[in-house]
Computed example of a mutant assay.
Amino acid sequence: MIRVLVVDDETLVRTGLRMILQPADDIEVVGEAADGREAVEAVLRHRPDVVLLDVRMPVLDGISAAAEIGAQPSPPRIVMLTTFDLDDYVHSALKAGAVGFLLKDAQPHELVAAVRTAAAGNAMLAPTVTKRLISRFADIKPAARARLEVLTAREREVVLCVARGLSNAEIGRELSMSETTVKAHVSRSLAKLDLTNRVQAAILVHDAGLA
């Protein structure tokens, strides 16, 4: 069972998210919070697997809350909730360790899929949304390219595919590798780059101007 904490300062939004998630047999909404400070405390109390975290909230904003939650032992996966056009600083949340973001006008099945994807340890790298966000904020930095030089040629190919939003299965088909081999390459590359998730790897590739 995937334990989910819903965080938004609007009661109707929290109620709507709960109603969408509750019918799923493998998802349980274990709690709600109305601001970032409540969210940090609720994570300690409920120990969710996934936190749906609004960006703009009173008391403590979503980005600051994400940083505090990420600093906890065995932190949950964080998916930011955003309207995209208004929340220009979501990029900072991704760099802080959030595994991705979801638009508030997403379809119900997309919300359920997002929770399952995050719980499985994968990043929310939807090509039509996440790439727009990353490319909008990323600056080409020589330092970013230098960091990628620690990778082997094969690892570099895999990381470039990650930046395109491909899943392990899709990368395997494109590079003629087994999904297990792809997963090993991704894990090894993240370790070499001192990154915690695929979103950060994608941002690094975009920062390097190689996407």
Rank of each mutant, 00 (worst) to 15 (best):
V4R: 08
L5K: 05
D8E: 03
D9L: 11
D9S: 11
T11S: 15
T11E: 13
L12S: 14
T15M: 13
L21A: 09
Q22K: 12
P23L: 08
D25N: 13
D25G: 09
D25Y: 07
V29P: 04
D35F: 02
R37I: 02
V40A: 11
A42H: 03
L44E: 15
H46S: 12
D49A: 10
D49V: 05
V51I: 08
V59S: 12
L60P: 08
D61N: 15
A66M: 12
A67P: 00
I69L: 06
R77K: 15
I78V: 15
V79E: 01
M80C: 05
M80T: 02
T82A: 08
T83W: 01
F84C: 09
L86T: 15
D87L: 06
V90Y: 04
S92E: 15
S92R: 14
L94H: 01
K95Y: 01
K95R: 14
A98G: 06
K104E: 06
H109Y: 07
L111M: 13
L111C: 06
A114H: 00
V115C: 11
G121K: 07
G121M: 06
P127C: 02
P127Y: 06
V129T: 12
L133E: 10
F137P: 00
D139E: 13
A144C: 06
A146L: 14
R147G: 00
R147A: 07
T152K: 02
V159Y: 01
V162Y: 02
L166F: 11
L175A: 03
V182Y: 05
H185T: 01
H185D: 09
V186N: 10
S187G: 06
K192V: 00
N197V: 09
V199F: 06
V205W: 01
H206T: 00
A211V: 12
